[in-house]
Simulated assay, not measured.
Amino acid sequence: MKFYIIGERELVLAFKLTGVDGTIAENRNDVLNAFNRITGKGGTANIPTGEIPKVLILTEQAASQIEEEELAWQKTGNFPLIVEIPGLNGHVKGRKMLSDAIKQAVGVEV
């Protein structure tokens, strides 16, 4: 399964050490351009079908900059699936953690 990360420099470099490609995003424009390229929105994808990542990892800081676009993509049900992870400064206040979302959806604490 192919993964891709968009986020802060240090996290992207760390993921690259494990073989995961990524884009360093320093502002909303960087995040949005990378997101559109990976998801193929706007016809900007130059990625062959077999190379499309199945999982897109966004740091919470990156995800907070494109909340509307991310939500619209998730509603399509297409690949890549989006997973948010805390950034270098930890969990962003006010953002729901994955374990909280699972607990709310399934009723089981993870």
Results as ranks from 00 to 15, higher is better:
T76H: 00
E26P: 01
T44P: 08
E69H: 09
I6W: 03
I6A: 06
L56S: 14
I6Q: 04
L17P: 06
G87Y: 12
G50S: 02
P53C: 03
G40I: 04
P80K: 07
H91T: 15
I82N: 12
V12W: 00
A45Y: 02
K93Y: 02
K93R: 10
V31K: 09
K2T: 15
E69L: 04
G19W: 02
P53M: 01
G77N: 09
S64T: 15
I38E: 03
E8Q: 07
G94I: 12
E68P: 03
E84A: 03
E68I: 11
I24A: 02
D21I: 07
F79K: 14
E51W: 10
F3Y: 05
F3V: 04
N36C: 10
N27I: 04
V12H: 00
M1G: 12
R9H: 01
V12P: 01
G90K: 01
I24N: 08
T59Y: 02
A63G: 07
V92N: 07
P48L: 06
N33T: 13
G7R: 05
A34M: 04
G43F: 10
T18N: 09
I5M: 14
S99Q: 11
G19L: 04
V83Y: 12
L71D: 13
V12L: 10
E10G: 05
L56G: 11
T59Q: 05
I52F: 05
M1Q: 14
F35D: 00
A101Q: 14
T49C: 00
N36D: 07
Q65C: 04
T23C: 05
N36Q: 13
K96C: 03
E67R: 11
L71T: 11
L81V: 15
A25H: 01
I57A: 01
A105H: 03
E67W: 10
G7D: 07
S99V: 06
I6G: 05
K2S: 14
L11E: 01
V92M: 05
Y4Q: 05
G107D: 05
L98P: 15
E84T: 11
A45I: 14
E67V: 10
P80Y: 07
I82T: 08
V106A: 09
D21V: 10
